[in-house]
Design a protein around this nucleic acid. Structure first.
Length: 355
DNA sequence: TCTGGGGTCCTAGGACCC
DNA sequence: TCTGGGGTCCTAGGACCC
């Protein structure tokens, strides 16, 4: 065996549910659903995750809590607790940094690792043992030549396993699968591809990139074929991610119709976002207001600020001005405020390139 | 199953300028 | 004005992911 560069994708199994079960060991083996404030009678609240026992009752993440309660009246409902997940995630990422690997964190429960070794499976098993010994959490590890392969491999490795998907076994593993199996092709694109006669990964890989470009745009079209060929990014970026923007939104349990009420909520969301931007030390350059009308029609309006700022009054004023560009004569179920940040100066991320 | 919240990137059309 | 072509910025929406 020869030493070679690998990309590993580490994915914590059932992360939110696993953290909750560590905090409430007495609930192990019971149907548990996590989401919202933990009140399953609250309308317009959905499950963030559900344990395997809850899944046996047909409950899954994204399902309204009221539906979950109907399907399993004995289920235990817990409120979502982001700070707890943040803390658990940080402990895991700290463990990864003790290994001779380059670490790129991808959200709470995932990381890509760059490693040079002749035995990636042993490295993967060592990582799993370290994470489990120090946190009680299990994870799946995918091994690939690039992030796309490693990401799909960790999916095949679930739960708690190790799987290798490289250019050597890509075709035999992926060619017969639907295009939606690729990371970055969802239900919509998969359907459009099928309408063009492209149902499988093999068919997409053999498609004419110009034909794809004509249907999906100059970047996306050829990119889909690239994915079908098993290609993908192979750079591990070890510097912390710099957010492009930030947002806050609220779905109201009951519709809003009073204009003063609507304005008040938008101003409050804008102040919150401005406060967050200030805490993060970032300047705001654009403000977007999002309105979701009943039953489910979503519209956005945005404007670029005359000057960058983090001042809550200025941002709230801008958001309220934008709000009044909407037709507000229909009941509203969601309001949101998003901002775009200016890129921080001296922003030169260090890239560690594989291959 | 009456459908969360927080992100990222791409596309297309119009305005505007040379 | 019976008007070419390209570049850039701004805005709204779509798709995807966790």
């Amino acid at each position: 065996m020869s030493t070679k560069d690998w990309i590993l994708h580490l994915d914590l199994d059932q992360f939110i549910a696993a953290v909750e079960l560590l905090r409430h060991p007495e609930l192990r083996g019971k149907p548990v659903v996590v989401g919202g404030s933990g009140d399953p009678t609250q309308p317009r609240t959905v499950a963030a995750t559900a344990t395997y026992e809850a899944r046996e009752h047909g409950i899954h993440s994204g399902m309204p809590l009221r539906t979950a309660l109907r399907r399993c009246p004995d289920a235990i409902f817990l409120p979502s607790d982001p700070p707890a997940y943040e803390a658990a995630s940080e402990r895991v990422m700290n463990i990864l940094h003790t290994f001779p690997v380059r670490v790129e964190i991808w959200g709470w429960d995932e990381a890509f690792l760059g490693a040079t070794t002749d035995d990636p499976e042993t490295l993967a098993a060592d990582l799993q043992h370290a994470v489990h010994n120090h946190t009680g959490l299990t994870c799946s590890v995918g091994i690939g030549d690039n992030k796309h392969q490693a990401k799909l491999a960790s999916g095949f490795a679930k739960p708690a396993g190790i799987h290798r998907l490289t250019s050597d076994n890509w075709a035999e593993t992926m060619n017969h699968r639907p295009t939606q199996a690729l990371w970055g092709i969802g239900a919509r694109t998969s359907k459009k591809l099928a309408d063009l006669g492209l149902h499988t990964v093999a068919q997409l890989a053999a498609a004419d990139p110009r034909h794809l470009a004509a249907h999906f745009g100059p970047t996306n079209g050829p990119w889909y074929r690239y994915l079908a060929l098993g290609k993908g990014e192979a750079e591990i970026v070890t510097t912390p991610w710099i957010a492009r923007g930030h947002s806050r939104e609220t779905t109201f349990p009951h519709d809003l119709t009073d204009p003063a009420d609507i304005t008040h909520h938008v101003a409050a969301l804008a102040r919150q976002v401005a406060h967050d931007a200030g805490e993060a030390g970032r300047q705001v350059t654009r403000v977007t207001v999002k309105v979701r009308f009943t039953p489910f029609l979503t519209r956005t309006r945005q404007s670029k600020l005359p000057a960058t700022t983090t001042d809550p009054d200025t941002i709230a004023q801008a958001a309220v001005t934008i709000l009044h560009r909407f037709d507000l004569n229909r009941p509203i179920r969601l309001l949101g405020v998003a901002v775009e940040y200016t890129p921080p100066e001296n922003d030169q991320p260090t890239l560690v390139t594989l291959e």
